[in-house]
Amino acid sequence: MSFGSPNQPYGQPHDPQQGYGYPQQGQPAYPQQQPGQPGYGYPQAPQGVPQQGGYGYPQQQPGYPGGPGAPRVASMGRRFGARLIDGVAFGIIYTVLVVIGVAGSFNAAKDCDPSAADYNTCINDASSGIMNSVFSMIMIFALIGLLYEWLMVGLVGATLGKMAVGLRVVKADTGQKPGMGSAFIRWIIPIVGSLACGIGQLLVYLSPFWDKSGRQQGWHDKAAGTMVVQH
C-alpha cells in the first residue's frame, strides 16, 4: 500500500514554501470573527440584561449623591422647618408633663394646714416635691427625645418633622437608611454640645453652612457618615 509518491510521502500536495497541510501564506490560521459575534469561549450577555459591575454586583452610579437620578441635597430652610416642627411637638409634650407634675405638688401644698405646728415642714416638703417633679419631667423628656430621634432616624430615616417637609437621613455613600449606630452618633453629638450652655448644639446645627463638599453635612452628619436629602 502506498501513501503517496516518493516526493509526497503523506499523500498531501507539497508546496516547498508552505509545508504539509498548513494554510497558504496570506490566509489566517483561524476563522476570522465577524463583527457583532461574541469572542471565542466567552458567552455574550443576553439582550436586555443590564450590565453588571465586578463579581456580579450592579455597577454603581458614580458620584452618589449627585449622579443621575440621585436625590437632592436638603436645603437649610427645610431642615430648619423640620427642627421647628419637632421642637413644637416636644414643647407641647414637655409642657403637659411639667404641668401634671407641678399640679400634683401644688395639690399637696394645699393640704397643709396653716394652723398646724408642722405647717412649715409640710410646705417645705411640698416645695421639694415640686422640684423633684420638674427634675423627673426633664429626665423623662430627655429619654423620650433619645428614643424619638434615635429610633425614628435609625429605623425609618426621618422624624415626624422631616417627614412633614419631605426630608430623610441617609448614609452618604450608599443612600440607605442610617441604621441604629449611625443614628445614635448623629444624635449624641448635638446633645454633648448642649452641655456648653447650648452653644455647642447651636454650632452643630449651623455647621452645614460651612460644609464645602456640596452635601451640606453638619459635624454630626460627618461623624455618622450621613446626609440629609429631600424627595
Rank of each mutant, 00 (worst) to 15 (best):
F141C: 02
F135S: 10
A158Y: 05
F141K: 02
A126H: 06
G154N: 04
G129T: 01
L160G: 00
G161M: 04
W150Y: 00
S127G: 13
M131E: 09
V165Y: 01
R186M: 09
G157T: 14
A158S: 12
D173L: 00
D173E: 14
W187H: 05
G166S: 05
V153H: 00
C122K: 05
G154W: 02
M139Y: 07
E149W: 00
N132W: 04
P190A: 08
D173P: 10
G179V: 13
M131H: 02
M131I: 11
P178S: 11
I189Q: 08
D173M: 02
A164F: 07
G145D: 05
L143E: 00
A172N: 11
V153D: 04
V192S: 09
G179R: 05
I185L: 15
V156N: 10
A158T: 04
I188E: 01
F135Y: 14
V134A: 11
V153L: 08
F141R: 05
L151Q: 02
I191W: 13
P190W: 07
V192L: 15
V165Q: 08
L155V: 10
R186K: 11
M137D: 08
C122G: 07
G154V: 07
G166D: 05
W150I: 04
G154D: 09
I144C: 01
I144R: 00
V170D: 04
A142K: 04
I191Y: 14
K162I: 10
E149H: 12
L146V: 09
M152P: 03
G175M: 02
V192K: 03
F141Y: 11
G166N: 12
N132Q: 06
A158K: 13
L146P: 06
R168M: 07
V156D: 09
V134Y: 08
S182T: 07
M139N: 05
L143A: 13
L147D: 05
L160P: 03
K177M: 04
G181V: 13
V153N: 00
T174E: 07
F184D: 06
S133D: 07
A172E: 12
I130K: 06
D173F: 01
I140V: 15
K171Y: 06
V156G: 00
A172V: 15
K177I: 09
Q176H: 12
I185T: 11
N132E: 15
D125A: 15
I188Y: 06
I123V: 15
V156K: 12
T174N: 01
A183R: 03
G181K: 08
I191D: 07
S136A: 09
S136L: 14
A142T: 09
L147E: 10
G129D: 11
Y148H: 01
N132G: 15
R168Q: 11
M131Q: 11
G181I: 13
A142I: 13
I189P: 06
L146T: 07
I189Y: 08
F184A: 01
K162W: 01
I138C: 03
S128L: 12
K171H: 10
G145M: 10
V192N: 11
A142P: 00
A126K: 08
P190G: 07
M139V: 15
W187E: 04
L143F: 10
M139A: 15
